[in-house]
Design a protein around this nucleic acid. Structure first.
Lengths: 121, 121
DNA sequence: GATATACTACAATTGTTGTTGAACTAGTTT
DNA sequence: AAACTAGTTCAACAACAATTGTAGTATATC
C-alpha cells in the first residue's frame, strides 16, 4: 500500500467521519434529494446542510442537478461508481486475512532469531 | 440506520481518517509490532507514534502487549474481530444496491405526482 | 546505584473543522 | 417591480486534533 494512496483514502474517510454527513448519505440512498427536506429530516439549518453537501460533492461522493422545471430546486444524488470503488477499497484494506501473525525484527529475542536464521542458511 | 449507530461509525471513521494511522494499521497488518520500528518505517518520532497508537487502542482497533522477557518492549497487534466487524458494517452501509432511484416528496412536480397517485388509488 | 532503553504523558503551538448568523444569488410568483 | 423561495457564500467563533518538545515512568543493564 503506497503512501499516496493512504493519503487519498484518509481524505475520503475524513469526509465520512461526521455523523451529519453519514446521515445525509443515508438519506440520499433512501431517495431524499433536496436540501430543504434533508434539513427537515435532520433538524438542521439549510446552510449547514449546504456546507456538508459541498464537502461531499468536493469528495466526488455526491452529484448535484438542477430541476429543469423550477431551477430553484437542486437534487442531490450519490455517485454510485465512487461509492462502489470506496467500498471495494475498504473491503480489501480491512481484510483480516491479510494480517501476518508476527514478524519480529525488533525486541530482545532478535539475537536468537537471527542466530536461528543463520543456522538454517 | 439509527442515529446512534451513525455516531459510533463516524467516531471509528474519524480514527481511520489520518494517513499516519492508516499507515500504522497497514504496518501492523504486515507483522511489524513495536513503536520504534513503526517510527523508523514512517520517519516519525516515537512520541507521535505513541499518540496515534493510543487513539487506535482507545477505538479498540489495536491491542497492546508487553514482552514477557524484556518488559520495556510493547507489541501492538490488530483487533481482528473489531476489524472484521467494521469491514462488514462499511460493506453493508456503502452498498450501491441499497440506493433508491428517486423518491420525490419535494420540488415543483410534487403536485402532479400527487395527482397521479390520487388517480391510481 | 547510576545509566541506558523503550515508551508514555504533559504542555504548547498550530492548523483544521463544525456550527451559527447574516448577507447574497438566482429563479419564481404575484 | 416587489415579494417570495431555494439555496449558497461569507465571516466569525469555539472546539478539536496533529505535531513538537520536554519531562516522566518503568524496566533493564553495567
Amino acid at each position: 500500500m503506497p503512501k499516496a494512496e493512504t493519503r487519498g483514502l484518509a481524505d475520503t474517510l475524513k469526509v465520512l467521519s461526521d455523523p451529519n454527513r453519514l446521515m445525509i448519505l443515508e438519506l440520499l440512498m433512501q431517495g431524499v434529494q433536496c436540501n430543504c427536506e434533508l434539513g427537515d429530516k435532520l433538524g438542521l439549518p439549510m446552510n449547514l446542510i449546504s456546507h456538508h453537501l459541498k464537502v461531499l460533492r468536493e469528495a466526488g461522493l455526491v452529484d448535484a442537478e438542477r430541476d429543469p422545471v423550477d431551477a430553484r430546486w437542486v437534487y442531490y444524488s450519490i455517485n454510485t461508481r465512487l461509492l462502489a470503488r470506496l467500498r471495494d477499497e475498504l473491503y480489501a484494506f480491512l481484510d483480516p486475512e491479510r494480517i501476518v501473525p508476527r514478524l519480529p525484527t525488533c525486541g530482545p529475542r532478535i539475537a536468537s532469531v537471527e542466530a536461528l536464521r543463520a543456522l538454517r542458511a
